[in-house]
Computed example of a mutant assay.
Amino acid sequence: EAAGGGGLLILESCESAGDGLDADGLDAAGLDAAGLDAAKLAADGTRVLATSRCPLPGSINLHLGPLDRPDAVALFGRHAQRHGVDVAATDRDRALADDVCALLEDEPLALVLAAAQLHRTSLPALAARLIDAGGCLALTAEDAAVPPRHRSLRSSLGWSHQLCTADERLLWARLSVFSDAFTAAAAWRVCADERLRGAALTTALEGLHRQSVVQSQANGRRPGTWYRLPRTTRAYGAEWLLRLGEEPAFRSRCLEWSMGADLDPD
């Protein structure tokens, strides 16, 4: 029951709701289009809590980013205890737990999956495995109580990948060559070609940002908007770049840009 009376209806993954919630949001039209009775929900005082990769019109949107480091360590520790591991037993264990959180960029799903590995591997071995971003993608946990796409990082990112347009998927792969933050201008210089140029590239970048595949961040040293791919998201894109046969060409273009390009976003 929601605070203040009435019920609470939780809707997950509304970005995949077809022409319903993802297009119209949580207003009456959007709820009705998704097969829900908006008038009855309102009459019953039912509140709707929806999760989505994209902001939903007609709603109060709360962006959920990575956890603060203390909260990330606490979450990892709680789930590790379920496998009989105390990550705070010694100073070394606490340092390793912090390393795990840093390597997974304090993302809750990644931390839960990492803790699940501790029933068959040691904490030092887990931390060493995660140094390679591919090791992060390989994190899995068998739990019938959760959707299949949440049982591994690769599956979770694959779900997001499937919901992207063809141009967004292509740009995601090419942006993986950036090891650090980049501007829209840098994305143009490195990633544009006859397959992805002009308005198509701009629209794809905006779409990836709207869906939280690409994150924006402040750069205190330089003005303008800067973007980045989270570590595991970048690793997933790199796998696709390799499959597309474009890795050598676009890594070379990124190297040329990093060595000689003007980094001013204007």
Results as ranks from 00 to 15, higher is better:
residue 80 A to Q: 03
residue 27 D to I: 08
residue 201 L to Q: 03
residue 224 G to F: 06
residue 95 A to K: 06
residue 198 G to S: 04
residue 23 A to N: 05
residue 208 L to P: 07
residue 3 A to S: 10
residue 52 S to E: 08
residue 9 L to P: 05
residue 103 L to K: 13
residue 111 L to M: 07
residue 165 T to W: 06
residue 86 D to M: 07
residue 98 D to T: 12
residue 23 A to C: 04
residue 255 L to K: 01
residue 221 R to E: 13
residue 256 E to L: 15
residue 147 P to Q: 04
residue 96 L to S: 09
residue 245 G to N: 10
residue 110 A to S: 08
residue 80 A to F: 06
residue 158 G to T: 11
residue 180 D to C: 07
residue 179 S to Y: 09
residue 113 L to N: 03
residue 214 V to D: 07
residue 205 L to V: 01
residue 230 P to S: 06
residue 144 A to W: 02
residue 221 R to C: 07
residue 237 G to E: 05
residue 209 H to S: 10
residue 182 F to Y: 13
residue 68 D to F: 00
residue 263 L to W: 03
residue 201 L to I: 02
residue 133 A to L: 09
residue 10 I to A: 14
residue 178 F to N: 05
residue 39 A to V: 10
residue 217 Q to D: 09
residue 188 W to R: 12
residue 207 G to K: 05
residue 178 F to A: 09
residue 174 R to Y: 04
residue 230 P to E: 08
residue 5 G to F: 01
residue 214 V to A: 13
residue 120 R to V: 03
residue 62 L to F: 13
residue 46 T to E: 03
residue 209 H to K: 00
residue 75 L to K: 01
residue 12 E to S: 12
residue 18 G to Q: 07
residue 177 V to G: 05
residue 116 A to P: 08
residue 205 L to D: 04
residue 69 R to N: 02
residue 172 W to M: 09
residue 175 L to F: 12
residue 162 Q to F: 01
residue 255 L to G: 11
residue 94 R to Y: 02
residue 160 S to I: 00
residue 168 E to A: 11
residue 167 D to Y: 01
residue 255 L to F: 08
residue 250 F to W: 07
residue 55 P to A: 13
